[in-house]
Design a protein around this nucleic acid. Structure first.
Length: 288
DNA sequence: ACCCAGGACTGAT
DNA sequence: ATCAGTCATGGG
């Protein structure tokens, strides 16, 4: 019998059809940060509930107090990924990325957790962001099972002091997360309002949050807002865009030109293109 | 010791 | 509007 890490009875499980999806590609791909690899599967959170997930071919075995629709929504199983990926342009680098990463998908992250994760992401590596996420849960979330904690609500973080967050090894990001949480908690920022705007306008609105710049705003829109036309440009995307699409320019291209090129090359699904290119470039052009 | 990490903010031009 | 300096922390 497998150890019941999250204290979940083994008979409580869902079996979901998820053709083409790979958990092992998707969950560590740098857009969700609440998942830990366990023996043969993953443990993490969906709809604020702890769960363990195992993959068996085209099926997901989900252990936890979840409804099928909650799990299906999280993994965006309603999105016709085959058609969507086939609709991406026939561009050599992108096609190579698509071919080398079968099963990579974008999940739907909770918006505040996603915002907090990416506020904490600046000058951090992916394992560190996950570590911060789990530490914020452990210290400030509610206990919701054995070794399982909810992600703290904005009101909870808003009531803390900077030193409390620095204890989670947030460093200079502590001030940003605290200020942003207070903007959210007292209504100066409203997620529903952001989602009522176009992607470009929503990105500007999101940047009213302290610690949220253009890159983080686009990450939030892509991974929590489902805006597949959002195009986050981090150091890796900047490098690959420069190397592949501005090979002759001696000086680094300007962000404005990167964004314009992404529209021309990848169209309204450029966020998905970015997701594949980022992960592919990072894992094939860097040996680790 | 040195360099980099899914950046954003600040102040000087 | 653009641009270098600065901001903590961990890992190679």
């Amino acid at each position: 019998m497998k150890p019941e890490i999250f204290n979940i009875m083994p008979q409580d499980y869902l079996r979901l059809e998820a053709p083409g999806l790979s958990l092992d590609q998707t969950l560590p791909s740098g857009h969700t940060f609440c998942w830990q690899s366990i023996d043969g599967g993953w443990k993490g959170y969906i709809s604020g509930k702890p769960c363990r997930i195992y993959q068996s071919g085209n099926h997901l075995i989900v252990h936890g107090d979840l409804t099928p629709s909650e799990a299906a929504h999280y993994f965006a199983l309603d999105v016709p990924w085959d058609k969507l990926l086939a609709a991406l342009p026939d561009e050599p680098h992108l096609q190579q990325a698509l071919q080398s990463l079968p099963g990579l998908r974008c999940v739907r992250e909770p918006w505040f957790e996603c915002t907090a994760n990416f506020i904490c992401s600046s000058l951090k590596q992916i394992p560190h962001i996950r570590q911060i996420n789990l530490e914020l849960r452990r210290r400030f979330g509610q206990s919701i099972g054995s070794d399982a904690f909810s992600f703290p609500e904005p009101e909870v973080i808003a009531a803390l002091e900077e030193k409390d967050l620095r204890a989670c090894r947030l460093g200079f990001r502590a001030r940003h997360l605290l200020a942003a949480s207070r903007q959210i908690a007292d209504g100066r920022f409203n997620w529903a309002q952001a989602m009522s705007l176009s992607t470009d306008e929503a990105a500007l609105y999101l940047q009213n949050l302290q610690g949220v710049g253009e890159k983080v705003a686009h990450c939030i829109l892509l991974y929590a807002g489902g805006r597949y036309d959002a195009f986050p440009v981090d150091v890796w995307v900047f490098r690959l865009m420069r190397q592949f699409y501005f090979p002759k320019s001696r000086r680094p291209p300007k962000l404005k030109n990167i964004n314009r090129k992404s529209r021309e090359l990848f169209g309204p699904l450029r966020g998905i293109a970015q997701h594949y290119l980022f992960h592919w470039y990072r894992t094939t052009y860097v040996k680790d």
